[in-house]
Design a protein around this nucleic acid. Structure first.
Lengths: 361, 361
DNA sequence: CCTGATTTTGGGAACGTTCCCATGACTGTG
DNA sequence: CACAGTCATGGGAACGTTCCCAAAATCAGG
């Protein structure tokens, strides 16, 4: 009977096609143990300098690259973060994503991006995916009525957007809506638009409530009954802004009209509607937007708007998140100021009443 | 001397805050082995139905969620894909990302998004990050002069954009530039614009070369010397389109002008320049864009353009990539057709020569 | 040259899963 | 009733790291 020596059996054969070098291969070449290689490549202090160089050279010679999965599994840190926004194709969130991604890359981390499409179920499923991927934390712009899933998320979160208010215990980064709205209304005021019509967001959303609360307070402070304001609701889309504007024009009749839209897409929709109605902006209709998306420069006239610091929001959110993950800061609420961008969609009623019509910011 | 019993030592204490239940916890509750739990939860066939239900119930009862890192490490598949584009904040790539992300989510995969910012070094570093994250594959819109890193990438790739030509051995998804350019030129032709000026991309880029090659051939076929065409280069940005348009207007003098821009941002820049020069679009200047970004509806007049199927590109690229990873298809080059969008930035010279000026697509 | 402290290294366990193989229970057939 | 054949289950190795602890090597001081 012929017996093959059991001791000589090849115990482990690498799967074909997956033969990336490991720390052990490096150790073999450098003539040290895997522990030493790990120390050398992780920048630990307790290692001889010559040994380190020898290991680094060996690693380079075979093109070794650390397996992030294994590292994450063992260390409990994945170096990945999640970003969940309603729609990455929306210029505002694309800009936020860009800010977050740049900051993450700067910290050698990666960003998992998801679009929830305003769908709570989809958002919940994305959050689950993030948890399973063992990301170290997530930046979330939650869909309004999806508070439960977020509360149960169970890992570091930084919130973006209005629903930060609903989670006082979570960190958040947002723009200063109150300051922005007031700045916009002050600006309108200074141009002689004392009672602008408002194109607001959908009634259910918290963003809408916050926006309208400031408007309300502002007019109370300026001795105007907020109830006399013309408010039309929209869905934050171009189409709905267009529709809202048509309704406003119908109600307002033929006088000069000024509208303040709760986001730029609706403002630009309002401008389209103005054109469709055969009216001119800013001569007949003044329009002020809110967001500061790049597309605002393309309209004629360019859209004057209250700009949110989108990229800054992404940037700070990422920073805050990584601080939180690293245990540097546990909880913080950051509010970034909005900025006025004047491009020409607002008529100056003060000057025009002196006989000359001027378009200004 | 007091000795603590060595055998009674707690060998392993879970790190605080990281006490997520594992497959073993589930096994303990369900009263089966971890292998059985794995089988039950992975949908394997060889398991008793009652046992499966028992396990699933146990898993739910403690809120077990599979650790994706461990799964990936062991199985060699991470269920993650990479996407590297020049700039996620650019509406075209944001749309591509949206398409890819939706398709990935549909397949229960995640997408790691990176912006290279046209920087080859940054692109290389992102590719390295993807390799270390052990993604299953990547969709890349490469920076033109970064061919080496891509060739050495060493995992399934699907290319987006013009550089697909440089890698005939790699799969790719792109729009049919030739068809699109011809469609645009035909359209201009039908409106009486026989010799449009061209605002092209930067000379170095392959996208530029491809665009101009089609233009060149087209005019040769139509008995026009391509050398007589006015071509101004831009950088695919609004500003550079604006600058190029100013140069064109200076050279063209006072006649009617028609320009075909190689992307929408430059076309919109050209429209801004037209306005700055005191000219009207489309009465004095006709403008045709290329891309189909949403912002094209906001200009006055709306931008007529040859639209690339951005979301479709992301969608198909992701599909192709996952096919490739799963070994279904090894290599394919998909070309999607462009579509003409007519909005009003082009004058109809044929009708206008009959006495009436009409804006048309 | 010895001793104790310090630095440097190696070995093995652990992270949480999947995969392979062995075992046991059960079924049907001769 | 013995046997091969299926089916369900359990045990252990493996994935490639990091972390802990012990061993080895080096160093300083007497």
């Amino acid at each position: 009977m012929v017996t093959f020596p059991q001791g000589g059996v090849v115990r482990y054969m690498k799967k074909a096609g997956n033969n990336r070098p490991t720390i052990i291969d490096v150790a073999g070449i450098a003539g040290v143990s895997k522990s030493t290689v790990a120390r050398a490549l992780s920048g630990a202090s307790n290692i001889n300098n010559e040994t380190r160089e020898k290991v680094v050279k060996a690693a380079q010679s075979i093109g070794y690259e650390r397996n992030h999965l294994a590292q994450s599994l063992r260390s409990g840190r994945s170096g990945m973060y999640g970003l969940v926004v309603p729609d990455i194709a929306n210029p505002f969130w694309a800009e936020v994503a860009r800010g977050a991604q740049d900051k993450a890359a700067q910290k050698d981390a990666s960003l998992l991006v998801f679009s929830s499409d305003w769908n709570p179920a989809r958002e919940a499923s994305h959050l689950r995916a993030l948890r399973q991927a063992r990301v170290d934390g997530a930046i979330v712009n939650p869909v309004e009525d999806n508070t439960d899933d977020l509360a149960r998320f169970g890992m570091p979160v930084v919130l973006i957007g209005s629903s930060a208010e609903r989670f006082p215990e979570l960190s958040s980064v947002g723009s200063d809506i109150a300051q922005g709205v007031r700045m916009g209304l002050n600006h309108l005021n200074s141009l002689g638009h004392m009672q602008p019509a408002i194109i607001s967001g959908p009634a259910g959303r918290l963003a809408h409530v916050r926006f309208m609360r400031v408007v309300h307070d502002y007019f109370l402070e300026h001795n105007t009954d907020p109830a006399t304001l013309l408010v039309e609701g929209g869905e934050y889309t171009v189409q709905s802004g267009q529709d809202a504007m048509h309704r406003i024009l119908k109600k307002k009749g033929d006088g000069k009209v000024c509208v303040f839209a709760a986001n730029d897409l609706m403002a630009l929709g309002a401008m389209l509607a103005t054109r469709e109605a055969g009216l001119k902006c800013p001569q007949d209709v003044s329009i002020l937007g809110f967001d500061g998306i790049p597309a605002g420069v393309f309209s004629d006239p360019g859209l004057s708007t209250v700009a949110k610091p989108a990229r800054g929001i992404g940037d700070r959110a990422m920073e805050l998140l990584s601080d939180q993950v690293d245990g540097r800061v546990s909880h913080e609420k950051i509010i970034l100021p909005c900025e006025m961008i004047t491009r020409g969609s607002l008529a100056d009623m003060v000057k025009s009443s002196n006989g000359q019509l001027m378009a200004t910011g």
